[in-house]
């Protein structure tokens, strides 16, 4: 195995890992604020992919511009879902909430199946076709762009959460719901916004994946399982942990695909996951409920 192949695998792994991270960031945010494990996250990502797909196919809109559209659309979807479906059962036992999000996932997927048929669809963007040659390493343009956008989106989110009034309110609500309510934070409103932001992250990730992947109503499953692994690895609720977790999973995946025989790569990812949790049961960086 030559050295350039290994460099190639490392680059690819990091680029793909960034995208896994972005999917997981939304998941972890929702968990951090509402303690809800959102099974519909993959389905929300699928909606984001369709937004980009239709914007590109029908209107010819650049996929990286349509990210804005899918962020707005998914924020709205997330906000509405939270307000009308999740909010009423926020104090119900956790397994009820989990089943509800599972139900939302099934509804969204089957709705997509009816509306857009089970076809695999993808977009073909001329200027993204060829990779960039960097030494002996080929950088895949859409993945590189996805990575850059992921970093930018996470940076913005980080700033919003840490520095703004809204962010402080979200943090307050995530740390102590009753307390936040007492000091005048509209917790119900904040929950809606937080779920909206989480859904928007999924939508943005969907848009970013679209130029190098396929969309079909069931596509969410491929990413949902990985997003769970990533989020738990980074400590469920921990923001930066999700990003680092994504990079680790991406890297593990591509290196094991290169170095190990057969299709062991799927197994290695989960083996690593189990291994890390055995050593650190709250994830690599601990649960984020206190440090949001």
């Amino acid at each position: 195995m030559n050295i350039s192949a290994i460099f190639q695998a490392i680059t690819d792994g990091l680029l793909m890992g960034g995208v896994y991270g972005l999917v997981a960031v939304g998941l972890t945010l929702i968990f951090g604020v509402m303690q809800i494990v959102n099974f519909a996250h993959g389905a929300l990502m699928m909606l984001g992919m369709y937004v980009t797909y239709w914007a590109f196919t029908l209107l010819g809109i650049n996929p990286y511009v349509s990210i804005l559209a899918s962020i707005c659309a998914l924020f709205l979807v997330g906000f509405i879902l939270q307000r009308f479906f999740l909010d009423p059962i926020l104090n119900a036992p956790q397994h009820n909430q989990l089943l509800l999000t599972l139900g939302i996932m099934l509804v969204l997927e089957n709705l997509a199946l009816v509306l857009w048929s089970p076809d695999f669809r993808s977009i073909k963007v001329e200027w993204l076709e060829q990779g960039i040659l960097l030494g002996s390493v080929v950088l895949n343009k859409p993945r590189l762009l996805a990575f850059v956008f992921t970093l930018a989106i996470t940076a913005v989110l980080y700033y919003v959460l840490k520095k703004t009034e809204l962010g402080r309110a979200i943090q307050a609500a995530s740390q102590e719901r009753e307390g936040a309510h007492l000091v005048g934070v509209n917790v119900r409103h904040i929950n809606g916004i937080a779920f909206g932001i989480g859904a928007a992250c999924a939508g943005a990730a969907g848009s970013l994946i679209m130029p190098f992947y396929f969309v079909s109503p069931g596509v969410g499953h491929v990413f949902l399982l990985r997003a769970f692994v990533v989020a738990i690895l980074g400590g469920l609720g921990n923001f930066g942990g999700a990003l680092v977790g994504g990079l680790i999973i991406g890297l593990t995946e591509s290196l094991s695909a290169l170095l190990l025989p057969g299709s062991l790569k799927e197994m290695v990812v989960y083996l690593l996951f189990v291994g890390i949790l055995l050593v650190r049961p709250t994830g690599l960086f601990g649960g984020g409920r206190s440090n949001g």
């Binding site: 030559n2 192949a5 695998a9 792994g13 793909m16 499953h221 990985r226 591509s254 695909a257 799927e266």
Partner: peptide, 19 residues
Amino acid sequence: VPYSNQSPNLTAEINKVAA
């Protein structure tokens, strides 16, 4: 080179072929 048909990324597998 076998791969999982659910895999979102086949770059490493292709590099194995290329090698």
